[in-house]
Nucleic acid binder design. Sequence first.
DNA 1: AAGGAGTGACTAAGCGCTTGCTTATCGCTA
DNA 2: TAGCGATAAGCAAGCGCTTAGTCACTCCTT
Lengths: 202, 202
Amino acid sequence: MPNARPKTRESHPETARDRLIAAAVESFAAKGFHGTTTRDIASAAGMSPAALYVHYASKEELLYQISRSGHDVTLRLLREGAASSDDPMEQLLAAVRGFTTYHARGHTSARIVNYELSALSAEHYEEIRAIRRTINQQMRRIVEAGVAAGVFHTPNPRMTALALLSLGVDLARWYRDDGEWSDQEIADHYCELALRIVGARP
Amino acid sequence: MPNARPKTRESHPETARDRLIAAAVESFAAKGFHGTTTRDIASAAGMSPAALYVHYASKEELLYQISRSGHDVTLRLLREGAASSDDPMEQLLAAVRGFTTYHARGHTSARIVNYELSALSAEHYEEIRAIRRTINQQMRRIVEAGVAAGVFHTPNPRMTALALLSLGVDLARWYRDDGEWSDQEIADHYCELALRIVGARP
DNA sequence: AAGGAGTGACTAAGCGCTTGCTTATCGCTA
DNA sequence: TAGCGATAAGCAAGCGCTTAGTCACTCCTT
């Protein structure tokens, strides 16, 4: 069984669920959750309006799935960065590179992840907020570890960590696929900026 | 005539137009343009739904007025920063302090200014985009002037200017009025970060 | 034969905005 | 200064339309 699938089998290389998610990501990013109709999503996925409800219970569930998996990826990137080395500077560089690259390359879904929180249901919103707190914590720990080790120099590690996250998050807002820099170039530059921000070279 | 008024006289200290703008700012910031109904706005301003149209032609016009004046203020702050001194470092500090303070203290309207562009009409969107380009230019000029004068050190002034703007813009996203830092403290810290980012102390 | 994927027609609710009207306030005339 | 016409602000009601979501049904694969 070289290609085991979870429970049901589907013949298409891209499942209907995936196509709906992809269509929702594009629409939500371009026009916002409330600016997007279920017909926008369904027709972009090549289906009738009713087909959406075969696969998802509501428009909000689509948003939740997108938001949830985006946040999971983001947290994983930071954790992998922190676990990549014992040296805080290496940890910071790995975390910033992962975070930055994700927000540039995946700017479409990253916009939803960061700007559509208020459209989530109350329960989902709380769940996502908890992940976001963990994300902030993770970045803060890296900065604090560097300060404790004497390799970083900043008077306010907590605010500095937020500033580092801000750089990445806002990238999703202004990054364009046809822009003048690749996500690689941006990540390189942002790694340099991160070192300056934490005062790695006093 | 100790209190001359433009054309018509109104008895209220805060005009109906102003109350509608204030209500729209709150609603748009909290739920987005498309998530806000004209009834939300009108009732928050203490009026019937129809009264909105006595003062504004459409819901979009409210958004445009908010966006336009927010962008005008932002550009003015950067220009005042650039004009405040001949020393690029002083210019940078004044610009960053103004920009940061505005995005913290005025985070509610700043959210609309930065995140609701796609809800504008095509004509208004183009008009606003032009202002945004000028804003980017202004910050870039300050950084380039510093590099030319040999007091800043960065391999990519254009991207560095965008990063400086990103810090301020994203502040509007995460800043809370009841947060642990005042806008004053944040501005101080962000001025220090700005100096590090542009490499003012090599 | 069975069951999931997908559909067209539908509904109830809510949307932006308009209409027809009342009220309050002003400048002007007598 | 009393009364009048003009004008703008405001409201109750509601119009025409769009929305998210439903349902009875038909395909299609196994």
